[in-house]
Amino acid sequence: MAALTIGSPCASLAAASSSHLDRPALARLPAGRLQFGCFFAKNGAVSTCAARSSISPLRAVAVDSDQSESPLPSSEAKPKKYYFVVANAKFMLDEEEHFQEQLAERLRLFAERGREQDFWLVIEPKFLDKFPNVAKRLKRPAVALVSTDGPWITFMKLRLDRVLTESFEADSLAEALASSPVDVQFERPKNWVAPYPKYESGWWQRFLPPNPSQPEA
């Protein structure tokens, strides 16, 4: 019997196994660690090497179907907040001489910048029913300047001075701008001494809500 030359442990098997790994049978083995066990007789006459694959079993992970799906966003629209200043119609529409000019300038600025109008004049607004402490301090009919821009309404409060201010939430623009029908007319002063012409009655029409929806009382 030929002598057995022993070099590095299982060196010959490691070399042979690399070629055997190309065989389809070994290629189908799951990925894992290949361990070699070698046994040699003390007299060197017999050698036995065995290779076995140490493969970690796959673990199935159960996923709760409720957790695997992200919650869908709610389709319900949230109420929007509106801010307003309010006073009697005589003051807002006839006596405050610079009010029309400020609204016209803001409307012009929005048109230049392509911004959607976010302010309106509301004559006898229905939302005043929610503010009895405000309503009892007003002469009627009342006019409110309503906007979704809180800081601007604060500025207008300081600019107009003799107005009351508050805020509320509404589910729609139509609800926020709902009003009670009332005809507003003012007599022209007999003696107008200002160096500029008085604004014509009805100038506020273009600042009223477009196609206002009047909900049933």
Rank of each mutant, 00 (worst) to 15 (best):
A104K: 10
P189D: 11
F127V: 12
P79M: 07
Y199A: 15
S68I: 10
R159V: 02
V122N: 07
D129W: 04
S19F: 08
L145D: 00
S53V: 04
D22W: 13
V86F: 00
S54L: 10
I153Y: 05
L208C: 10
G114T: 08
V143I: 01
D118T: 08
P24T: 09
E105A: 14
V85N: 08
E101Q: 15
V85M: 05
K190F: 07
S180A: 02
R28E: 05
A41F: 03
R206V: 06
F99L: 12
D149F: 02
A170W: 08
S74Q: 14
G114W: 07
Q100G: 10
R113K: 15
L128E: 06
P189V: 08
S70T: 13
V134E: 02
L29Y: 01
F36V: 14
Y82N: 02
V134Y: 04
E96C: 08
T48R: 15
Y83Q: 04
V184W: 00
E175M: 13
A104Q: 13
K81P: 00
S167N: 10
S180Y: 07
E97Q: 08
P197A: 09
E200L: 11
S74E: 11
P210L: 02
E96V: 01
M1I: 11
A25H: 06
L173M: 14
A194Y: 11
S167R: 10
E105I: 05
S167P: 01
N88F: 01
S201R: 11
A135Q: 06
D94E: 13
A174G: 15
P125V: 04
F84W: 02
L121W: 11
A217P: 07
N211I: 05
F168A: 10
I6L: 15
L26D: 11
W120N: 02
D66Q: 14
S8F: 11
P141G: 04
A111C: 09
I153F: 00
W204C: 01
P181A: 04
K130T: 07
V46I: 14
E124H: 03
P71A: 13
Y82M: 06
D183T: 14
F110V: 08
H98S: 09
A45P: 02
F40S: 05
E175Q: 15
E200P: 00
A170L: 12
K198G: 01
E101I: 14
F84D: 00
S12D: 11
E105L: 10
A50V: 15
L164H: 08
I6K: 12
S172T: 15
A2L: 12
K126F: 00
E166N: 15
A176L: 07
P189N: 09
S172Y: 09
P212C: 07
L72P: 12
V143T: 13
F131A: 08
Y83A: 04
R113F: 04
